[in-house]
Every structure is written in structure tokens, then in C-alpha cells.
Design a protein around this nucleic acid. Structure first.
Lengths: 114, 114
DNA sequence: CGGAATCCGATAGGATACTG
DNA sequence: CAGTATCCTATCGGATTCCG
């Protein structure tokens, strides 16, 4: 492709790397997603109402919206127990758990700010 | 604080880690920021017009806006040469360069999607 | 060349009320 | 309990025009 001065860790082109990271970031964008994720990291399993109470300021609409998006992306798993009253539990998928070190790298970078 | 099942890599509380990552992500949010960053990674130094041409679809307004935000956050450095016609160059700061491995971690995670 | 200023539509997110 | 549905606002981003 003309010029590739030197590769970054993998064999991506600048364009595809930008797109890939962009897609990854899009999955995490949203006012409440990170807060949800950090409550679920470590294998925690929480019900809708527990998340609602654990995250101050979130509305039910936003909470369910962000959860649904995380679920659609395969980061969060949703389990419905056919009981009455209804019980729904949220946890991270295996892949979702793998986000932790990546976010930690980002946190480390932010902490290194001059 | 009641319960701390087990810490993640560092000594952060869930709340502060979420906030920290949230701040980091906010710096990278914006339609064109990643594309800008990937053009500057590796020590590349580009003029405004070069970035403009290198990033198809971006308007001057958006380009300058995203550049200004990256500059304000200390990720990008802007150098003005008092010539005529004017010349302005953009490059990453040292700290900005350090973003690369963190984004690569994110890319690696995205690539591991089941 | 490297912007700034203005207008304008789309979307993200908040408040509130209602439901199976 | 775990959501829907509706309305409303603020911010984001695009298009265009003008300036030193």
C-alpha cells in the first residue's frame, strides 16, 4: 500500500485499525455503560433493580437501553427466570470479562497524564 | 465500604475506576478523533490541509473542532509557523503516543469476539 | 492556508407516567 | 419487578459562507 513506515503491534493498516478501535469504542459509548460494566466485572450477577439502585441518577429507560445494547453486542448476558414476580439477572459474558484488562490499560494511560 | 470481593489490577474502587475510564473515553469520543490519532501515530507530523485531505468526509469545522479538543486534553500538539501563507502542524504529544498500546489492547479485545 | 461564524437536522439522553 | 411509551431538550455533527 505504498508506505508503511513501521507497523504497530499487529499487521493492521492505519485505516482498519482506526475502524476497529472505533467499533470497539462505540460499544462502550453511552452515558451509563461503563458504570454498568464496572458493577458487573469480577463475575458479579445483578438483577435489574439492583443495578438501578447501584447506579445513582440513571432512569429505568436509560438503564434498560444501555443493557440491551451491551447485550446485543455480546458483552452482557441476560437471564430471565419465569417466576412471579419476575426476576432478571445480568452478568458479563466471557468476552465481556475480557474487557477488563483493556480498560485497565486505558486507565493506566489516563493516570500517566503529565 | 462493606464489600470488596477482590480488586482488579490496581487499587481502584469500582466507582473511581469507572469515572477514570469514562474520562479517558470522553477524550476519544467524537466522530473523527480516532481517525486523526491513527494518522498521527508513529510520530507523523501533518499540516491542517494534509489531515483534511487524508480524512475523507470530514469538514473543516469538524476537523478543527476535534483537533482543538485533542489539543486541550494534551493529546495533540499544535505548532504555528508565522509565515505567509500560514503553516500549522499537528503531532502527538509524548502522552498522546502512549495511547497506542492502550488502543491496541482494545483492538485485541474486539478481535477476540466469539 | 487555516481557520471562524452561522444555520440546521439528527440523535442521545432526561423526566414522567403507565403496564404485564 | 422489570420493563414500555411519550414527550422534550441538549448536544453533536454536517453544509455553507466568510475572513486574516
Amino acid at each position: 500500500m505504498g508506505n508503511a513506515p513501521e507497523g504497530k503491534s499487529r499487521g493492521h493498516t492505519r485505516a482498519s485499525a482506526a475502524e476497529g478501535v472505533e467499533r470497539a469504542l462505540k460499544m462502550l459509548e453511552g452515558r451509563w455503560k461503563l458504570e454498568i460494566l464496572f458493577h458487573l466485572f469480577g463475575g458479579n450477577v445483578l438483577r435489574f433493580s439492583e443495578l438501578d439502585r447501584a447506579i445513582p441518577g440513571v432512569s429505568q429507560k436509560m438503564l434498560i437501553q444501555q443493557l440491551r445494547q451491551l447485550e446485543a453486542e455480546g458483552i452482557v448476558a441476560r437471564t430471565v427466570y419465569p417466576e412471579v414476580p419476575p426476576r432478571v439477572e445480568y452478568r458479563l459474558t466471557d468476552w465481556g470479562q475480557m474487557l477488563c484488562p483493556a480498560l485497565d490499560a486505558l486507565l493506566g494511560w489516563a493516570a500517566a497524564r503529565p
